[in-house]
C-alpha cells in the first residue's frame, strides 16, 4: 500500500547554519550572504525529504524566527513583545500584542518559502491557524475575539497566497490551541470561521494539524471544519478517542515522536498505523511525525526523516 508521508513543520538548523545566523546577528555576515547559506541548507533538507519518498516537501523554514512571527511582519496594529512559552516545549516565541486594527502595510517576505527548490505539486507551506494565533496573542484592541480571528485569517490567507503564488501541493495550518485543552463549542465555531476564510481563498488541499494535545479535546467539532485532511498528534492520543467518529475526510497520523531522539522501530510504527486505520473510519491515512522536528538536534532530525522513509518503503511492500 502506498501511504503518503511527510513532515508537519520546521526543520532544525545545522550547526553551521546556527553559526551563520549568529555571525549575521553580530553584523559579521551580510543578509545576502546569510540568505545564500539558508538556501544551501534548505536545498539539503529538501533533498533528504526527496530521498525518503515524502509526498509533500517543506523547505525547512530555516529562516523563521519562530512559528508565528512572519505572519505579523508588515502589519500595522501589532507589537512584538516579550518571550512566551511555545505550548509545552522548552522553546519560546515572541508574543504579539494587538494594539489596533490589523492592517497590512508591506507584503510578507517571499524568502520565508523557497518554492524554487521544490517541484510545484509537492510544495508544502506551513502556517499557523488563525484561532491559535489569536490565543497566542494579547488582544488589546478587538472587542470580540471572532473579529480578531477573522482579521488574522485574512492575513494568514494573504501570506499563504503570496508564498504559494507559483504553485503549491499542500497548505498546512498548525493548530495546537485546538487540542491543548478541551475545545468548547463557541471556541470551535470561531476557529471554524477563521479556517473557512482561509479555505475560501487558498489552493487545496489544506491540512489542519493539531500537535501537542490529545485529539479527544477537539473531536468531533474539528471533523466538520472545511479542510481536506485533519492531523492528530498520536503520541498523546489514544486511538479510542477517534474510533467512535467518522472523519469523512483524510487524516494525518503523527506517529513518530518529533520531540524525542528515540528511534521507533519500523515494525512498531507499522503495527500502530495498521491498528489505527482498522479502528478509524477514514478514506486515507497519511503518516509522519507528531510535530515539527525543530526541537531535535539536526542529526537526530535527519535520522527521523530516514526512519519515516524506511516506514514508507515497508508500507509500499505490504
Amino acid at each position: 500500500m502506498r501511504v503518503p508521508g511527510y513532515l508537519v513543520g520546521g526543520f532544525p538548523r545545522s550547526t553551521e547554519l546556527v553559526k551563520h545566523f549568529r555571525e549575521h546577528a553580530k553584523g559579521k555576515l551580510s543578509s545576502e550572504a546569510l540568505e545564500k547559506h539558508v538556501v544551501e541548507n534548505a536545498r539539503e533538507v529538501v533533498a533528504r525529504q526527496h530521498e525518503a519518498g515524502f509526498s509533500y516537501i517543506i523547505d525547512g523554514m530555516l529562516n523563521w524566527p519562530d512559528p508565528i512571527r512572519p505572519v505579523f511582519e508588515g502589519l500595522d496594529g501589532v507589537e512584538i513583545d516579550g518571550l512566551a512559552r511555545w505550548f509545552d516545549n522548552n522553546f519560546f516565541y515572541k508574543k504579539p500584542i494587538i494594539t489596533a486594527h490589523l492592517k497590512r502595510v508591506a507584503d510578507p517576505d517571499r524568502r520565508y518559502f523557497h518554492a524554487e527548490l521544490i517541484p510545484k505539486e509537492r510544495r508544502k507551506i506551513v502556517l499557523p491557524d488563525p484561532y491559535t494565533l489569536a490565543r497566542l496573542s494579547e488582544n488589546k484592541h478587538y472587542r470580540r475575539v471572532e473579529d480578531l480571528v477573522a482579521d488574522l485569517a485574512e492575513q494568514v490567507a494573504e501570506t499563504a497566497g503570496i508564498l504559494s503564488s507559483d504553485g503549491v501541493g499542500q497548505i498546512q495550518l498548525t493548530a495546537p490551541s485546538l487540542v491543548v485543552s478541551k475545545l468548547e463549542r463557541d471556541e470551535a465555531e470561531v476557529a471554524a470561521m477563521g479556517i473557512e476564510i482561509i479555505a475560501s481563498r487558498c489552493p487545496r488541499p489544506i491540512l489542519l494539524h493539531m500537535p501537542y494535545g490529545p485529539a479527544g479535546n477537539a473531536v468531533p467539532a474539528v471533523l466538520d471544519f472545511p479542510v481536506d485532511i485533519i492531523g492528530f498528534d498520536m503520541t498523546v492520543t489514544k486511538s479510542r478517542e477517534l474510533s467512535e467518529y467518522t472523519a469523512g475526510k483524510r487524516v494525518y497520523l503523527g506517529l513518530l515522536d518529533g520531540r524525542n531522539s528515540y528511534m521507533e522501530p519500523v515494525e512498531d510504527i507499522l503495527d500502530s498505523y495498521v491498528e489505527m486505520v482498522d479502528e478509524l473510519d477514514v478514506s486515507e491515512a497519511h503518516i509522519g511525525p507528531n510535530c515539527d522536528l525543530e526541537l531535535l538536534p539536526y542529526s537526530v532530525a535527519v535520522e527521523k526523516v530516514k526512519r519515516l522513509g524506511e516506514i514508507l518503503k515497508r508500507m509500499a511492500e505490504l
Binding site: 532544525p12 546556527v18 549568529r22 524566527p65 522548552n90 525543530e294 538536534p297 539536526y298
Partner: peptide
Amino acid sequence: FRGLVRVWDNEY
C-alpha cells in the same frame, strides 16, 4: 550529547 537545539531566535 546529541547536538544544538533552539530555545528562541538565535539562542541554542
